[in-house]
Amino acid sequence: MHKKEMPSGALALLILRVLRAGPMHGYAIAQRIHLLSSEVLRVEEGSLYPMLQKMLLKGWASSEWGISETNRKVRFYRISPAGRKQLAAGWSDYGRVHEAIQAVFRGA
């Protein structure tokens, strides 16, 4: 699954889910997704930052200053109530689609 393109809807869900654990900077988000997916999913800079910008625009997340592990001042992203709502809606959508696909596979 190395370098697999991820549908942008799924990426948004993953980022939101990861952010639910607490505010995090961009690199940490990528790392976290990588880790949690047992190093299968890899989020590239080229898709992570456009998605983060989009989430700021939609109001699903906000940004604030924080200090990184390496003692640098960086931006941390924090999930907003609208983001939580989006996560719930997106997750249940995803679940439905997933089940539907499974049903097709089972039936065929």
Partner: peptide, 12 residues
């Protein structure tokens, strides 16, 4: 800010 973010990401 975006520039800084991405620069940091790169360094890490």
């Amino acid at each position: 800010e975006l520039f800084d973010d991405m620069e940091f990401h790169r360094e890490m």
